[in-house]
Amino acid sequence: MKTLTFVGCGMMASALSIPAHDNGHKIRLVGTHIDKDIVKEGKKSQYHISLKRQLSHDTEFYYIEELEKALDGADAVICGVSSFGVDWFLEEVYPKINPEVPVLSVTKGMINNSDGSIITYPEYWMQKLEEKGIKREINAVGGPCTSYELADKHQSLVGYCGNRIEELKMFREIFGTDYYHISLSTDIRAVELSVALKNAYALAVSLSVGIAEVEEGKEGVNHYNPQAALFTQASREIGELLEVYNGDRNQLELGIGDLYVTIYGGRTRKIGTLLGRGISFDKAMETLKGVTLESVVIAKRMGESINKLGEDGKINPEHFPLLMHVYDLIANEKKVNIPWEKFNLDDFEN
């Protein structure tokens, strides 16, 4: 039995504790400063008010002020913050973790460099920690898996990535079950970029939901041809972006699978639907006030990166018309106008 400390007890990290507990491991869930209500109820009843699931009676909950107590004796740490907590985790949590204790992150996203290149969160953390004199490896999770369905033990297939294969095998032994299946990769950039990009493209595909609602004059309708067309274009663009930033399309399937599951519900579908109805970005954000929207952050950062690389002649932004349209909706307050004519599927030279 290993002792696992999850820092950030949001829905995905907390759901991930379930297969680990099924494998006989001790679970400690530490709430950040925004998780106080979750911890308060968890300490009392082990019920997770955000995940809306009953966790096991021996799951231990801790406030962030109890972090050092929760880290004491931990065999592994799981980073469960959103992309908005990346720098906080870097400054406040990593220095308190023994460098010999393995870390697994569920946080998806990337950070822009001034030259237009990007760096994934595990790469960013390892780089910044090394600058502080802390040498450590950071592993990460990617792939098509929603927290609710994992908590309900529905069949799921994900990818774990990191530089040390033995560490990855250890995490697979901790979390892998007959319903939670894990593939391993040492290509951190490919896995993390693939599953981060799907957030921006899930927003893009969801635009068609809002457009259909306007055309039909009622909410909740679906036109599947437009959704499938946007899904197809999203798949093409994700593949090309993997080649631009990583050198090949390795791990494309994880991003496409994650794209599939993300467009069927949740926060990203909501913002995409609102924009698809013709609502401005500012008004859509006001409607969803208080909701964490990583898809918006990723779309904006990718758009900025593509524009910079385009200015330097390194890529052609016109190869990514769908992503750049989403970027225009967010950064330039444009109204939805899907550039269908730019989705060229010809496989021969003109």
Rank of each mutant, 00 (worst) to 15 (best):
S156I: 02
R28N: 11
G133V: 13
F171D: 09
K52G: 01
N163E: 13
G272N: 09
I64Y: 14
V195L: 02
Y224S: 11
L51I: 12
L254K: 00
L275E: 00
P102G: 08
A151D: 00
D87L: 13
I138R: 03
I111C: 05
L329V: 05
N246M: 10
V191N: 00
V195N: 02
G266T: 01
T3I: 06
A76E: 10
K132R: 15
N250S: 15
N112S: 14
G278I: 14
T59M: 03
I49W: 00
F281S: 12
Q46G: 00
F6L: 12
S208V: 12
P19G: 10
K198M: 03
V195T: 14
G159N: 01
P321F: 08
E215Y: 14
I165L: 15
M126T: 08
M302E: 09
W88C: 05
T268A: 13
D347K: 05
I188C: 06
L323I: 14
F171S: 04
Y121V: 13
Q251G: 00
I256L: 15
Y47C: 00
L242C: 07
V205G: 03
G143F: 02
P321M: 06
V141P: 00
G109Q: 11
L323H: 10
R269S: 05
S156C: 02
A204T: 13
E166A: 07
P19M: 12
P321R: 02
N307R: 15
E311Q: 14
D72A: 13
N332W: 07
G313T: 13
E219Y: 03
L259C: 09
V101G: 08
L90S: 04
H25N: 12
A151V: 10
A190K: 11
F171T: 09
G239N: 11
D35Q: 06
K198C: 01
K52E: 14
A284V: 05
C9M: 07
N246P: 09
E100A: 12
V326M: 10
R28F: 02
R53M: 09
E100M: 10
M11G: 01
H25T: 04
G217K: 10
I271V: 13
L168F: 04
E68I: 03
V297Y: 09
L345D: 04
E130L: 10
S50G: 03
R269L: 11
L252F: 04
Y124M: 11
A15F: 05
Y124F: 15
N98G: 03
F89L: 14
N250T: 14
G116N: 08
H325K: 14
M324E: 06
T268Q: 09
I78G: 06
M12T: 00
D248L: 07
I238D: 02
E100N: 08
V205W: 06
Y148T: 01
E173D: 13
K308M: 15
Y224H: 08
I256T: 01
G8C: 05
K128A: 10
S305I: 13
E60C: 06
H154M: 03
G24N: 07
A284L: 07
A190Y: 01
Y121A: 09
K36P: 01
